[in-house]
Amino acid sequence: MSDVNFRPDFTTKLCLEEPAATNPYIAERRYIAGYNLADLWRGRSYAEVLLLLFLGELPTPAQIRFGEILLIGLLNPGPRHVAVRAAMTAGVSKTAPEHLLPLGLLTGSGVQGGAKQVAEAHQFISSHLAEEPHAFAERCLGESSTTPGFGSEFGDIEPIWQQLAEDLAAALPDSPVMQWCSAFNQSLNRQGQGWLLPGIAAAGGLALGLGARETMGFYQVAIAPGVAAHGIEQSHKPIASNPFLRDDQYECTDLDV
């Protein structure tokens, strides 16, 4: 590895730290995309600064409203969501509480309903935006092809996500991404399919102008409050307050015992 030309330092466009005159390790001021963090906490909302961090520029009023809806919509995906459920399971089993959020996010990182599916859905949507959405949806249904971010859950579509997507589309009515996704979803609905949570996150990120990886990270940030809060809540409960299946509920098929 010694022959590889490694740079001596990290580089970033996101954050500048100005050192104190007396100690080069202490930051006198910190800037996010050029804006003094102190000015931001005095005059801007959390959603606005979060969007600034990911976008690199201050969001427009419409983007702020859109981002707030998205962040609230994803804030707590519910106790049955894979990431939340993982944190709850660990919380009640007395796992060290500082691990609950990261282990929840890890468990919910997969390509089937998790963070990786957000990135896949982002790619799916962005690579088909040029196609007429209704015809494309019919083709997907006809060929039974995969539609990352769209489909059915427990054999059905969840009304909450359909409502969230509608409100998001209304907040950015001129967004070609939201228009395309809404039309695509409408056609899928006829076959009992529609928006899934990762699809909404992906469309939201894409509509805001984020890349696939940035959208995945934004999604993880967005669901983190629900994961953390549910996990911590369970950590206060006795271990027997969580179901542990009885032997007769657990079939081992390699022998009859």
Binding site: D9, T11, K13, E17, P19, I26, G34, Y35, N36
Partner: peptide
């Protein structure tokens, strides 16, 4: 901070220069 301590300037910034926050 015993492991490879970093000065502020050890993270090279190549983004937008400091700028004033515009009024809403």
């Amino acid at each position: 901070q015993a492991f490879l301590p970093q000065r502020c300037t050890d993270v090279h910034y190549d983004g937008v220069s400091p700028r004033a926050l515009p009024p809403r």
